[in-house]
Amino acid sequence: MSTATKGLPGEVLMWVLIFSELAVFGAGLAIFMALRLLDPVGFAEAQLALLPGLAGINTILLITSGFFAAMAVQSPHLARPWLAAAALLGVLFLVIKAYEFQHKAALGISFETHDFFMFYYLLTGFHAAHVVAGIGILVIVGWTKHPAHIETGAQFWHMVDLVWVLLFPVVYLL
């Protein structure tokens, strides 16, 4: 396991990216919660159109995928199968997310329907874009098989996981 600075595991640039992404998503979630104060009834009614059961399944997929990515770091000789399994669960996450978006479209729900849905699409869509990027990164680092690259790729994947465990309850359940 490489150490870039002061014992912080992995590459320092990946940590800069992780802090930046957490700040962006954190700000988005805080603004979402603040807007909810202005229209609690509208937000509650809008939330009824979501599919929290599928989002819950997606949570299990991502935390398990994160476990697989962490196993790839700890078992470099088996990194490829672990990373492939992690990426596969990422693809399943996207399949469910695509169904969710299609479900909203079928209901005629768009960005402009309500502030709730504007933030729903922004936050979950931006997160889904990170899942797409993360899958690509897992494939690339699995191809190189370099332990430091694998650790960096796994860190990006854990950031995606971390954002989801905070986003899911705020958008789908509260």
Partner: peptide
């Protein structure tokens, strides 16, 4: 629960 999950990811997945 979300707080505890985020802590676990920081502590164990992100080492």
């Amino acid at each position: 629960a979300a707080w505890l999950k985020a802590r676990l990811i920081f502590l164990d997945y992100l080492a």
